[in-house]
Design a protein around this nucleic acid. Sequence first.
DNA 1: GCGACAAATGATAGCGCTGTCATTTGCGGT
DNA 2: ACCGCAAATGACAGCGCTATCATTTGTCGC
Lengths: 326, 326
Amino acid sequence: MDDSRINPDGTPTLAQVAARAGVSPITVSRVVRLPDMVAEATRERVETAMRELGYVPNLVAGSLASARTRAVGVLVPTVANAIFADTIQGISDTLEPLGYAVFLAQSHYDDAREEKMLSALLARRPEALIMVGSPATAAGARMLRRAGIPVVETWDLPTNPIDAVAGFDNKAAGAAVARHFASVGRRKLAFIGGDDPRAGRRWAGFYQAAQEAGLEPPLRLVLARNAGAGVAAAADLTGRDGVFAANDALAFGLLAGLRQAGRRVPEDVGVVGLGDLEIGRLIFPTLSTVRIDGEAIGRTAGLLTVSRDGPRRIDLGFSLVVRETG
Amino acid sequence: MDDSRINPDGTPTLAQVAARAGVSPITVSRVVRLPDMVAEATRERVETAMRELGYVPNLVAGSLASARTRAVGVLVPTVANAIFADTIQGISDTLEPLGYAVFLAQSHYDDAREEKMLSALLARRPEALIMVGSPATAAGARMLRRAGIPVVETWDLPTNPIDAVAGFDNKAAGAAVARHFASVGRRKLAFIGGDDPRAGRRWAGFYQAAQEAGLEPPLRLVLARNAGAGVAAAADLTGRDGVFAANDALAFGLLAGLRQAGRRVPEDVGVVGLGDLEIGRLIFPTLSTVRIDGEAIGRTAGLLTVSRDGPRRIDLGFSLVVRETG
DNA sequence: GCGACAAATGATAGCGCTGTCATTTGCGGT
DNA sequence: ACCGCAAATGACAGCGCTATCATTTGTCGC
């Protein structure tokens, strides 16, 4: 194949395929999108021309002409946190077979950055938008409402969602952990986590349930959201016999820190994480955790973007999984 | 703000902002892209109109008109593997400040699917493409060469790269692990991993170095690429005293499987992973591993897409980190 | 062969924005 | 006031494809 036939200023266009196959451009378009509508002989002629030219459809142009991008915007705090990676996986695995692509963006837990990312995503006119949590700013929320596309808030159950929800009750999850600690005789509790709204709700539930169980007020440590912070937090938890870490990664760090401090788990202190990452089942001692199916959240969110059937608020729930860490 | 002013058929357009501000459309465009080129009074008038209408630029149209998408396509085997998530993070953190977005796709380690994803990504006309590994099919490679955009192959050092490379020598990494095992007296080695080209190269280096060290031929187990397979693999490794797992996740599973089988690590069997995930430093016993800086691979790849300065082949190397698992 | 209808193909306009050249406006110097 | 130049703004065409209506072609029944 002689490359001189390719548009020297760029990649081959649909018009060039049409000229080569001796048909009009719209027929080439039909071969790509609606092949059953084209006579077999014509279709084969066009397909040969496409193959010879190495034609790759231009979805930028097609999206503009059709007012459809066939893409979904996805905004997560960070892709490096495995629980969100599972959600992205669920979203992608659900939408890709339906012909939808994923435009990914990260907020890094920063409100201003989240707003900027929402704007950047919306500029690309995704047909829907899925985000972890809810917009942190009024401007962000306004932008999403104005966009007039399906919006799914995940990993939480907001009282005034913009559109659809696929999440679980963070406050109830925190309460369940505190009640569990009380039921196994833990008296001095603590919570370690970040300062995002979801961690705040887990803390609120944890605190309230501890109060209701007659335990002394739990301690809250607000940390950076990585395992290293969990390691360091162990030093501030002397005397605490039950610690709820806002996510499993923090819990892994905490376990290492406690081990280094010579505190036995679960004999001296119980540890519960959140997320039920697979690693938690493999380490020693195995991690007790609040099981959240991040991938199911993603799948559900994906389905909520493409279908208006059924409820728009899905509570996927959680369950407390008690393993060796207490 | 009365919503009736918004285009009832969709979101506000640049033309509507122009009409509202009493300027021509190209002036609105300039306010968005080149604000210093517009007189202050005019700019403020336009900005007010944009704000009142809730105007969000349409990058679909802008991309077509300017022949620039300001996006980079990223193809990884799976986002759920932490080492690739780190790379995505590195890519995103490097490109986002430069105004580039990430179009993400996953191959799920399937050749046909990889080719389909490459085509889907290229249809969106990314200005560059970054992929883990190299194209598995000739058609995929041809597509990329034809696209005429910067292409970065990562996590490997291909002999005939399409354009640029940001990776490390997988074969040498495998060899280093075998030599390490030999140096600490391991005699019967094994390798567990998937069947992708990179795992194959790790195995080849491992096998060759073991031969050169006079050890009996190592055993290779080809597994599903998840921790669960690592757990199960322990049953097939009786009598082996040194096991190299193709990645850390597999190693975590293997450690659990060995623990369940009553085999002590490192007394009975040494285990080395690959990737140096943070969790490996936190668990007990701490994991020996081949350190690969996935995030640095991503950052380097990101820079290779936006700059043609300097070498196009970057070997980020690796290092063997010996911890408690041997 | 003719007419009716369906299948197949083509013509037209335009999606929302921008590269580029043209025109207008403003400023400073004489 | 006039001229030259730079800054600011506008006009025009079109990026590559597709929605939609129009036209052509093919098939079947009489």
